[in-house]
């Protein structure tokens, strides 16, 4: 059913720390590895060894620079995946009921057996979170590793999304953002976590933590570099050559 369920208490999601992300793409490959063998159709790659490889991924890592009015620019690595919006436009536009949001934990999923591959949900998503699997003809998206987080067959430390498990710098956090006392909610409150494109009215669950302010570097004097003042033996040599 593509009507959105009444907003539940539990809102599972990710908190991504843009301060610690180093842009290694470990979350991307780990996500691809888990999800190509798990839930639904495999994440196909087309023309993987050709000049223009294309494949379905559920997570992408961009690199941006933020350029202030004065001072140096700051480079920010930026992972982008489904934000599991409370008011998910990708769900309500679906004509078949394949796209749905779970009432119990807020995860947005695609029932691939009912997906006709029309692509309208991808058009409705402002975040580019959905990619068509060209081989299977169905829409793929982040499942928040629904087949890991409740999986009793896995050791407890593995019952988190593959991207969170793989992140070597601890830049990705998983938890219940509906619970104000949860670790992720406290992290968001402490660090001033924000939502992406709030003006689209989608009410994302996922939050991003801003890069911490950097200490302003010492102003660099180029004139000092151009005329180095020699000391010691070199200084004596310099003065001697000057007198010649």
């Amino acid at each position: 059913m593509t009507a959105l369920p009444p907003c539940g208490e539990v809102k599972l999601g990710l908190v991504i720390d843009l301060d610690t992300c180093v842009g290694c793409h470990a979350c991307v490959t780990s996500c691809k590895e888990w999800n190509t063998g798990g839930y639904g159709a495999p994440l196909s790659d087309l023309n993987a060894y050709g000049p223009e490889p294309e494949g379905a991924f559920l997570n992408r890592v961009h690199m941006y620079e933020a350029v202030p009015e004065t001072g140096p620019a700051q480079v920010v690595n930026f992972p982008r995946s489904c934000l599991h919006c409370e008011d998910a436009p990708c769900v309500t536009v679906c004509p078949t009921g394949a796209s749905y949001k779970r009432a119990e934990d807020g995860i947005v999923l695609v029932n691939e057996d009912a997906c006709i591959g029309c692509g309208l949900c991808a058009w409705a998503c402002p975040y580019g979170a959905r990619e068509m699997d060209r081989a299977a003809g169905v829409m793929k998206k982040c499942t928040l590793c629904v087949d890991r987080i409740y999986n009793d067959n896995l050791p407890e430390e593995d019952r988190i999304p593959a991207c969170v498990r793989a992140c070597p710098t601890g830049a990705r956090h998983f938890g219940d953002l509906g619970d104000e006392e949860s670790a992720v909610s406290r992290l968001v409150a402490e660090r001033g976590g924000f939502a992406l494109m709030p003006e689209q009215g989608t009410k994302p669950v996922n939050r991003y933590l801003p890069p911490r302010p950097k200490a302003a570097p010492e102003p660099l004097s180029l004139a000092a570099l151009a005329e180095p003042e020699a000391k010691g033996f070199l200084g004596w040599l310099d003065r001697a050559l000057e007198r010649l």
Binding site: L18, Y64, A66, V67, P68, E69, A73, Q74, V76, F78, P126, F194, A195, L196, M197, P198, E199, Y208, P210, P211
Partner: peptide, 10 residues
């Protein structure tokens, strides 16, 4: 607004 990084600059 897409990246939420406006406070840092363009």
């Amino acid at each position: 607004s897409a990246t939420g990084l406006g406070a840092l600059g363009r």
